[in-house]
Computed example of a mutant assay.
Amino acid sequence: MTKKEQNRTSSGIFSFFSGAGFLDLGFEKTEGFETVFVNEYHEPFMEIYKSSRKGLNVTEPQFGHNTDDICSFLNGKPAQQLTDDLKSAKSKFDLVGFIGGPPCPDFSVGGKNKGIKGENGKLSATYAELIIRNQPDFFLFENVKGLYRTKKHRAFFDQMKLNLIKSGYYLTEKLINAIEFGAPQDRERIILIGFRRNTLTDFGLELNGSPFLKTFDWNSKTIYKADDIFSKNWPTQEEFIENSEKPFPYGLNKKLTVQYWFDKNDVSNHPNANHYFQPRAGLPKFQSIQEGDDLKKSYKRLHRWRYSPTAAYGNNEVHLHPYKARRISASEALAIQSLPKEFIIPENISLSNMFKTIGNGVPFLAAKGLAETLSLFIENSKTPELKYAEIISE
């Protein structure tokens, strides 16, 4: 171990809206981070979270797995317990961080679109208030691009940022695409990261007025550029032929294709291989859609030698297997989310809960890339001579 590795900053992570823990896993598999508290209101998701860690060599959270409504942490006994846990974590770790992606249908153009007035939309405000009250050293907020690009939702997002700035945080944000980190899907998400002023000054950074981290290097751990990927001549639509074989097209990146990840995770032999919804309308509906036809609003057939359009598996968007007359399985969906093949969902979980938590989760490689980006910012900020992340005025 080098001297620099010995001096690496340790960070205790408090996770909220954890789902099955895809975002958490990205941090847990990045040196310097340890999840110490997990909050997920929906108990089946929490069961997946706990069970999936058994084969992934992940340390149990010091302060346990919690299924309370996040609003309970703003008042009373749960709020006091969180305060006590934070104090304990700060005595063990160099830094303490909050991470979370509040439920997003109310900000999704394709979802409820109720914004802050929706029940799920209110949870984003609650998460921000939780950060403001508890003052972790840093935080990560993840949500759908509708929060960033839709005018009426953007007003809420801007106000939320203003509240965080007033409470002492310096911010940086970016609309990321999971494909740039190597996940085989075109999936955009807004990421907001904040650091407490005192944390930054403790690093030795000079703060020059603006509350924005202008040189936070969002691309330090990306592998590809989205524009370069999408400019390639990817296959479009081809006749659906059940159980057919097709050669890989020349000149494309195989690692970004659905079939590559199916092979990588050995999805046919995965414990969740037979977990998929049976067709209600019969086989003709599934057989009529061409391989690669993902333009329809509902039924989309993936192309084996192309990335997935996203990872939504709800009632409104049905993803079909490229060359089988069925929906994709849970094991295939986990592969598209770039998870390790050791990630397994228990047999007793309903199909609805399986696919809902898979679709809601942050692609693992994107989560790991974000964790590594944060880690690099922290480590380089501690090295004044690098001048890596000087905060400058707009």
Rank of each mutant, 00 (worst) to 15 (best):
T126M: 07
E142R: 01
R197G: 05
K4V: 05
D263V: 04
R301Y: 06
Q6C: 11
K300R: 11
E206C: 06
S231I: 05
Q259Y: 14
F63L: 13
P78D: 11
Y224F: 15
D158H: 11
S52K: 03
F45C: 14
I131K: 00
F16Q: 13
K255R: 10
F63Q: 10
G110N: 02
S231N: 15
E142K: 00
L295K: 14
K87N: 07
N134G: 08
S15Y: 02
I336T: 08
S52H: 05
N253L: 05
Q278C: 00
E5N: 08
R197E: 09
L175P: 14
Y388T: 05
S298D: 10
F14E: 12
E317H: 03
E347W: 03
V96R: 01
G97K: 02
G369K: 00
A312D: 12
K145A: 13
T222K: 06
R187Y: 10
K112L: 08
D227W: 11
L147R: 13
I345F: 00
S268W: 09
T83R: 02
W234I: 13
Y250E: 15
E347M: 02
N253D: 14
V267D: 11
T383I: 11
F37I: 01
L252H: 09
L192A: 13
S352G: 11
S88D: 11
K221M: 14
E394T: 01
S18Q: 08
T126F: 02
E28F: 03
I70A: 03
Q62V: 03
D228K: 02
N120P: 05
R306D: 14
W261A: 07
F157T: 06
N163F: 15
S288M: 08
H303G: 10
K166I: 08
R53E: 03
A125W: 15
F203C: 13
L376D: 07
N253I: 14
A89W: 07
N265I: 00
S298E: 03
V38R: 01
I70V: 15
F37Q: 05
